[in-house]
Design a protein around this nucleic acid. Structure first.
Lengths: 331, 331
DNA sequence: GCCCAATTTGCAACCGGTTGCAAAAAATGC
DNA sequence: GCATTTTTTGCAACCGGTTGCAAATTGGGC
C-alpha cells in the first residue's frame, strides 16, 4: 500500500506538499505539482479516502437504505442511484432493512461508518426511520416518502393523493362504474394517501361505487391472492392497484378466472416499471418520473452536504398516464 | 460527535481502556469494562469504524460490483448479498460498472475506499476485471464467473457447460428435434460455455439438428427481437435461452406470432428468477441455486480476509430443472 | 538592487482510533 | 507477609491523511 509518505520521500518534498497536490483548491506551484505527480505515478499512489475523512469529516459515502428488494421497480432505483452518486464522486453504502425494525440501530450503523448522508428509498418504511436520521444530525432525503406539505425531512416523490385522484378520474372517464382500490400494506403512507385521493375523486362522481381492499405487501403473490379473494365475490368493473407488481399479481388472478381484460375487468397500476411496457404485459399504469425523482434526491442530498440545516421541503413530481391495454378506451 | 476521548474523560480512565472495552479479545477487567460502558452509554458513544480501520487495516467494507442492473435476477442477488454481508458485520459498497470499461479505474476506486475485498457479481463482465483486483492484492470472488477448473480468481457459480448439456438433453428427452440455442452476448463467457455444453450434448444425439443465435444483451427486448428475427425464417421446435429474461422476451415474440407454447414451440430458460414461477408466466427453466451461490461467495470472501493468499478455486453448484409450462411433456 | 506584498512551502498538531511496551495492580505460592 | 507470576492499565507512537501558521521564496515596482 503506497502512502503519502512514500511519495513525499521519493519526490523529496514535505508531506503537506503531496497532500496539497491531491486536494484541489490548495496552494501549490506548478513545478511542485509536477514533481509530486511524477513520483506519485511512479509508485501508483492513490490517496486513501478514508484517512482523509478523519480530518475533513467527509467520507463521500451515502447510505442507501431500503426494505424492498423484491419489487422490480428497484432495479431502476438501484441503477439510477448508483450511477448518479458515482457521477458526483459519491459512493453508496447499501443497507437492507428487510428484517430490521428499530430505527435507532440503523442510525447507529450509519454513524459508525460516518456516511455523509442518507437516502431512504422506500414508501413502506415507517417515517420514523427517516426522522431518526435527522434527529441525529445526519442529512437525509426520504425518496418515495409521504407528500406532506410540511414534512419533517426532505421528501422527494410524487403526490400520492393526486395519483389516487388521477386513477379514479381515469376509471370514471372510461366508463367504469364499480371501481375498486386494491392497495398495498395498510400501514404504508403511500397506500393511505393513494386511497384518500382515490376516494375523494370518486366522491365527486355521484354515479361511482367504490370498494376498498389491501394486499399484504407490494408483491406479485399478495396482489394475486387479494384479487382471487375479491373474485370469489362480485368483483368491481375495474381496480386501481397501488403498484405495478401488485397489478401483475391481480392480472394473473383475473386471467386465471377467465375474465377478459380490459373489457370485463380493467386494471390500472402505479409506477410504470420497466416490465410494465413489455409486450405481452402492456399494463396501463400511472407513470412515476423515476429518473427525475432520483436525480432530485441526489441533488438534495448533495446540497445538504454543504448546508445541513435546511428547512425540510417536499419536492413532488407530476405523474402521467401510461396508456396501454389493461383499461378500455373512453366511451 | 462523541469520541473515545470524551468517554475516557467522563469515565476518568485512559483512552486505551476505552478502546479495549470495545475491541473484543482485549485485556480489560470487568470493573473497568463496566465503568467505561456506563460512560459510553451516557454519551451515546459508538466507535468510528473508519478511524479504527486506519490502524487495523480492516474496513469491513466489501465492494459489490456489477454491470447488470436490468435483469430481475439481480433483485435476489442484491437482497441476498446485502443481508448476508450485514449478518456478518460487513457492509456492501456498490459499484455500478454499466458504463465503465476500464478495469484499472475500478481497482482504483476500490483501493481509495480501502474495501477489504471485492465481489464481482456478473457473468457478462470481462474476466479481466476480477483479475485486476487480484493483481492488486485485493481479495476477490467472481460470482457467476467462468467455471474454469483452474481459474485465476475464486469463482462461484454453476457449471455453465453442464447447464448447456442439461438443456439439450431435456429438449431431446421431450422429443424436440430441431433445437436452437438463443444465447446472450457472444462475448460473455457464460454464453460461450452454455453453447459449448449445448452443442456437445446435441452432438451425442444423432437425430438432433442444432442452430445457434445470440441476443445483444441479457434483456427482454434483446430476446424478443432476436426471436422475432428467427421466426421470420423457419424456426426450431424449441429453444434454450441463455437466461430467463431472454426467455420472456422470446416468449413474447412467439406468442405474438400466434404459435402455441409448448406444443408448437418450446422454450427453456436458465436462472429461475422469482418471476419465472409467477402464475401466467410459468417458465420452464434450469434452476440456479442462487442462495447457495451467494452464501458461498460470502463465505469465500470472508475466509480470504483472514488468509488472502489462497489458491484460486472454483466452487460450482449443480442445477436442477424447474419444470413448468413452456416445454411439453416427454413423449 | 532594494523593499514590500503575494505566493509557496514545511513544521507540527490534529482527526479518532489501536497497540507494543513497561509500570502498576492483583493473584498466587509458600 | 514476602517474592513471584499473571493480569490490568496507561503512556506514547502510530495509522494516512489535512491544515493553521510562520518561514521561505518569488515577483513587482521603482
Amino acid at each position: 500500500m503506497v502512502t503519502l509518505n512514500d511519495v513525499a520521500r521519493l519526490a523529496g518534498v514535505s508531506r503537506s506538499a503531496v497532500s496539497r497536490t491531491f486536494t484541489d483548491g490548495a496552494s501549490v506551484s506548478d513545478r511542485m505539482r509536477r514533481k509530486v505527480k511524477k513520483a506519485a505515478d511512479e509508485l501508483g499512489y492513490r490517496p486513501n479516502a478514508l484517512a482523509s475523512s478523519l480530518t475533513t469529516g467527509r467520507t463521500k459515502m451515502i447510505g442507501l437504505i431500503s426494505n424492498n428488494f423484491h419489487n422490480p421497480i428497484f432495479l431502476q432505483v438501484f441503477d439510477l442511484f448508483t450511477r448518479g452518486l458515482q457521477q458526483r464522486g459519491l459512493r453508496p453504502l447499501i443497507v437492507n432493512l428487510s428484517d430490521e425494525t428499530n430505527p435507532e440501530s440503523s442510525v447507529d450503523m450509519m454513524r459508525q461508518y460516518s456516511v455523509d448522508g442518507v437516502i431512504v428509498a422506500s414508501s413502506t418504511l415507517a417515517p420514523e426511520f427517516a426522522k431518526a436520521f435527522r434527529q441525529n444530525n445526519l442529512p437525509v432525503v426520504h425518496c418515495f416518502g409521504r407528500s406532506n406539505p410540511s414534512p419533517e425531512v426532505h421528501v422527494v416523490g410524487i403526490d400520492n393523493v393526486e395519483a389516487g385522484r388521477m386513477a379514479a378520474r381515469e376509471l370514471a372517464r372510461r366508463g367504469y362504474r364499480k371501481i375498486g382500490f386494491l392497495g398495498g400494506p395498510k400501514e404504508a403512507t403511500s397506500t393511505q394517501d393513494r386511497r384518500e385521493g382515490f376516494c375523494r375523486e370518486a366522491a365527486a362522481h355521484p354515479d361511482l361505487e367504490v370498494s376498498l381492499s389491501y394486499a399484504e405487501a407490494y408483491s406479485f403473490s399478495a396482489g394475486r391472492e387479494e384479487m382471487l379473494r375479491l373474485l370469489q365475490d362480485v368483483p368491481c368493473d375495474a381496480y386501481f392497484c397501488g403498484d405495478d407488481v401488485l397489478s401483475l399479481g391481480a392480472l394473473s388472478a383475473v386471467k386465471e378466472r377467465g375474465l377478459i381484460v380490459p373489457d370485463e375487468l380493467g386494471i390500472i397500476g402505479l409506477n410504470d416499471m420497466e416490465m410494465s411496457s413489455w409486450e405481452g404485459i402492456d399494463l396501463t399504469t400511472i407513470h412515476q418520473p423515476i429518473q427525475q425523482i432520483i436525480n432530485s434526491s441526489i441533488e438534495m442530498i448533495v446540497s445538504m452536504l454543504d448546508e445541513p440545516d435546511q428547512y425540510p421541503q417536499a419536492r413532488l413530481f407530476p405523474c402521467r398516464l401510461a396508456e396501454r391495454n389493461t383499461l378500455r378506451a373512453p366511451q
